[in-house]
Write a protein that binds this DNA or RNA. Structure first.
Length: 572
RNA sequence: GCUCUCAUAGUUCAACGGAUAGAACGUAGGUUUCCGGAACCUAAAAUCGAGGUUCAAUUCCUCGUGGGAGCACCA
């Protein structure tokens, strides 16, 4: 049990002891808007309702009846709220002590629970754009947050390597033969991937505009499904280009997958499942296709096998689910996929309840907001996309300029890479998951203020102070607390740090990394403010306590930053 | 047309139905001695419109306006 939980329980017990019908629980306690008002607050509205009294009256009555203790220094009524102020020295002792232990903030809500998080899923032969970047950064953070909460997490990535989009690209290649030959000779995998993006956009454009081309592309698609010799070589070759390119990006953003699924490995079984399901009445023939009647469940109908007898994405998802349950028997599968597929997933999950009854309640779509350009629309179909790597490179260039100026730094390239990853990841994760991100290269990726580099800077600054202390003295917090007074800024930092385990747990429950991002930012703000007003090294009797405080703070920052999926640096 | 979503300072984002709507960027000023100025301080600046529910609404409901997405053989 963490300190904060003990404190909350203690306060709740106090309330329930004097007001036996109250039944207050730790979740009822809220944070006052301003730390001067207190650290924790109990709103008396519910009590007022059941007792038919004025909430402010109840609060002031309770304030008189409840006694302070070692942990709670002060209890006062502020309007309808009963506010509790904690004893700073006691708080310091407990919180700093528990942060020193390994794994501060870990929880066991997911104990013995297996979970598959499926994310990234780029399609081969298409561009890897900033939308994918948001997906992969979000997915990785969610994995780490769930692991921290005790879940056994399997990272899965389902990559589309068959279907019409491939055919569009391959058709494009037949038209751009010379460029294709040139790309094949390139050693730089980025250039190969860039060529595929162009070929796809070209094919896609003609597909829309020209009926003849449409026919040809559909015919190519058929050949891919049939694994036709005429196309096999170029298909496999270009598929490899894409996959090599993706692997490079996964490595760059520090993500590893436990299992790579491919559409090509499930489409045959998908078709079989739907055909079998048709006999059982789960699916139905309609207008030459085979559909699932979503409208019978308040949803919409979807085609699972098209009139050319090929399985659509829907059918493939049936087989994918079957395979995932067979391989991992998970308690939950989370699909990190864009919001445009909300309705799609409702239908799929409903169909799966019939196809694979054990999947019920275990399949979940986790949509995240759109990454849209501030100006203009982005579409891989039209070829005007912002590539994920382009963004990383641009940010890195900006950071490298700053890093270059500092002559004391080593490994400048590696350092710039780390800081730029922090900048990009943080800028995506600080926004609420479901919110769209309006993307502007100049504004969205800030290097100051509420940003990844700000967190890293705060951490590095603390490390710099700690480096100046050769070996910290043997005095422990317990020994120093008696003669060191705890300032209010220090108590606020301590209290904020004590809340970290609850923030980490909540972010796992809600699958919301932004909660951690915000908490770390606020913690950093508090420290930087404190730093400017309070000497640490030059203080005398408070020195040991202050060092212990900032050491603990650095550790919380580090752990939180790792949950978000990037790394701290010692100097920057 | 139907369904789902979103609307908060100039911009990008916060705010379990609860206390004075909180930050960042940008703008305008400022930070002698000081452990890192990628920092800190000060200032100006906001709930799309109209109703309703509630002791209390940025938050819930209805209608309107304006973005975005989905709605059968793409993924």
């Amino acid at each position: 049990m963490y300190t904060i939980q003990k404190i909350k329980q203690n306060i709740v017990n106090k309330i329930n002891n004097v007001e036996t019908h109250c039944n207050a629980s730790p979740q009822d306690l809220v944070l006052p808007p301003n730390p001067e008002m207190g650290d924790l607050s109990y709103p008396c509205f519910n009590l007022a309702k059941s007792q038919k009294k004025n909430p402010a009256e109840i609060a002031s009555e309770l304030a008189k009846r409840i006694k302070t203790c070692q942990t709670v220094k002060e209890i006062k009524a502020v309007g309808p709220y009963l506010n509790f102020t904690l004893q700073p020295k006691k708080l310091a002792q407990e919180v700093i002590g528990e942060i020193k232990k390994k794994g501060y903030g870990a929880a066991n809500i997911g104990k013995n629970r297996k979970i598959i998080v499926e994310f990234a899923h780029p399609n081969t032969h298409k561009a890897f754009h900033i939308g994918h970047l948001r997906n992969i950064i979000t997915g990785e953070a969610v994995c780490r947050i769930l692991e921290n909460a005790g879940y056994k997490v399997t990272r899965a990535n389902y990559q589309g390597d068959v279907g019409l989009h491939i055919a569009k690209c391959l058709w494009g290649i037949t038209q751009l033969k010379r460029k294709f030959a040139k790309a094949a000779k390139e050693k730089d995998i980025n250039k190969k991937a860039a060529f595929l993006g162009k070929a796809y956009a070209f094919g896609s454009g003609k597909f829309e505009a020209n009926e003849e081309v449409k026919k040809e592309i559909k015919e190519i698609s058929q050949r891919i499904y049939n694994n036709d010799e005429s196309i096999r070589e170029v298909y496999l070759e270009t598929r490899k280009w894409s996959l090599d390119y993706f692997a490079k990006i996964y490595k760059r953003v520090n993500t590893k997958f436990d299992r790579l699924y491919f559409e090509s490995e499930v489409f045959a079984d998908g078709k079989k499942i739907v055909m079998d399901g048709m006999k059982k009445g789960i699916f139905k023939a309609s207008e030459g296709a085979i559909i699932f009647e979503g409208d019978k469940h308040g949803l919409h109908n979807r085609v699972f096998i098209n009139s050319e007898s090929n399985p659509t994405y829907e059918a493939k998802d049936m087989a994918l689910a079957k395979l995932q349950f067979k391989e991992y028997n998970p308690d939950k599968i989370i699909h990190v996929v864009g919001p445009e597929q909300k309705e799609y997933f409702k239908v799929i999950i409903k169909a799966l309840e019939y196809v694979l009854p054990k999947s019920k309640e275990r399949e979940q779509h986790l949509p995240y907001g759109w990454v849209r350009l501030k100006e203009g629309k982005m579409s891989s179909r039209l070829g005007n996309v912002i590539l994920g790597e382009w963004l990383l490179d641009e940010v890195k260039k900006e950071i490298a300029k700053i890093v270059k100026k500092n002559k004391e730094l080593d490994n400048k390239n590696e350092l710039s890479e780390k800081i730029s990853l922090a900048a990009v990841k943080y800028s995506i994760l600080k926004t609420g998951l479901t919110r769209d991100i309006a993307f502007d290269i100049k504004e969205s990726i800030s290097l100051s203020g509420n940003s990844g580099p700000y967190l890293l800077y705060t951490y590095a600054r603390i490390q710099s102070i700690l480096r100046k202390v050769e070996t910290h003295s043997n005095a422990s917090v317990q020994e120093t607390h008696s003669n060191a007074s705890v300032r209010s800024e220090e108590k606020n930092i301590l209290f904020k740090m004590s809340l970290f385990p609850e923030v980490a747990r909540e972010s796992a429950e809600k699958l919301e990394p932004s909660l951690i991002a915000r908490h770390l930012f606020e913690l950093s703000q508090q420290f930087n403010d404190y730093y400017h007003a309070t000497p640490v090294l030059k203080a005398e009797k408070e020195r040991e306590f202050r060092l212990a405080l900032i050491r603990a703070l650095a550790q919380v920052l580090k752990q939180g930053i790792e949950l978000l999926g990037f790394e701290t640096v010692e100097k920057m």
